Computed example of a mutant assay.
Amino acid sequence: MNFTQRQKQIVEIVKSKEPVSGDVIAEELGLAKSTLRSDLAVLTMTGVLDARPKVGYIYSGLEPQSLLFEQFNQYKVADVMIQPVIVYPDTMVNDAITSLFMYDVGSLYVADSTSKSLIGVVSRKDLLRSLIAGQAEKTAVAIVMTRMPNIIAVTPEMTVLKAAELISNHQIDSLPVISSDDQVIGKMSKTNIIDLLVELSSEEDA
């Protein structure tokens, strides 16, 4: 994969003005900051830029043709996805909360009891809201979950880079991985992506 012209422009701006904020980059290009979100995600996820809280973007010294970039772009979701935590529509919120903390995850995927296909996602926030309302013992997750088709999902064949763009664009922590028949077969998270970058970076430095 090659960088787009706009992504190359962003890199040059950061090189000349680092550390620089997303607002300044957007102003330099005459665009809204939200328009650049996916570009900045690509550049940071591949390690070309380093995003530092309260500081801004820093140029890492890596170029698109670097070994890290090329290796990262070759990985598929299937290579790094992890096991999902699945519940069913009739699972009580109380039980879902137990699963949430038992497996230390931020969201649970809701599958149809018969077909096992993905029908919803329930987040930590959804569950805790029901708990605070005192309805955890009598409310099923089907009542509080986000339903299809309002769920962003990925397939095993999709590149990790594309998954990273989706996570950044939609400001979410993870994505369900679904098969051709919509069954949940995995989970793709920010942590998966960061772990992969750390591993590739270590190999490049060795």
Rank of each mutant, 00 (worst) to 15 (best):
M1F: 10
N2P: 08
N2C: 00
N2Q: 13
R6Q: 15
I10C: 04
E12D: 15
E12Y: 04
I13P: 11
V14H: 03
S16E: 15
E18Y: 02
V20M: 06
S21P: 03
V24W: 03
A26T: 11
E27L: 09
E28H: 10
S34A: 09
L36R: 14
R37P: 00
R37E: 14
V42G: 08
T44K: 05
M45N: 14
L49D: 04
L49I: 04
D50K: 15
P53H: 11
K54I: 03
V55Q: 12
G56K: 09
Y57T: 01
Y59I: 03
S60Y: 05
S60R: 08
E63Y: 10
Q65T: 09
Q65I: 09
L67F: 08
L67K: 11
L68I: 15
F69W: 12
F72C: 02
F72Q: 00
N73L: 03
K76T: 12
V77K: 00
D79L: 00
D79S: 10
V80L: 09
M81R: 10
P89D: 07
T91E: 07
T91M: 12
V93I: 07
V93C: 07
V93K: 03
T98R: 02
S99F: 14
F101Y: 13
F101G: 00
Y103D: 07
V105N: 04
G106K: 09
S107F: 02
Y109E: 02
V110K: 05
T114F: 10
L118T: 01
V122F: 07
L127A: 01
I132T: 10
T139C: 01
A140K: 11
V144F: 04
T146S: 10
R147F: 04
I152T: 10
P156S: 12
E157W: 04
I167F: 02
N169L: 11
L175N: 08
I178G: 02
S179C: 08
D181E: 13
D181Y: 05
Q183N: 13
V184A: 13
I185N: 03
S189C: 05
K190V: 12
I193S: 00
L197W: 00
V198C: 02
E199N: 12
E199I: 00
L200G: 03
S202R: 13
E204P: 02
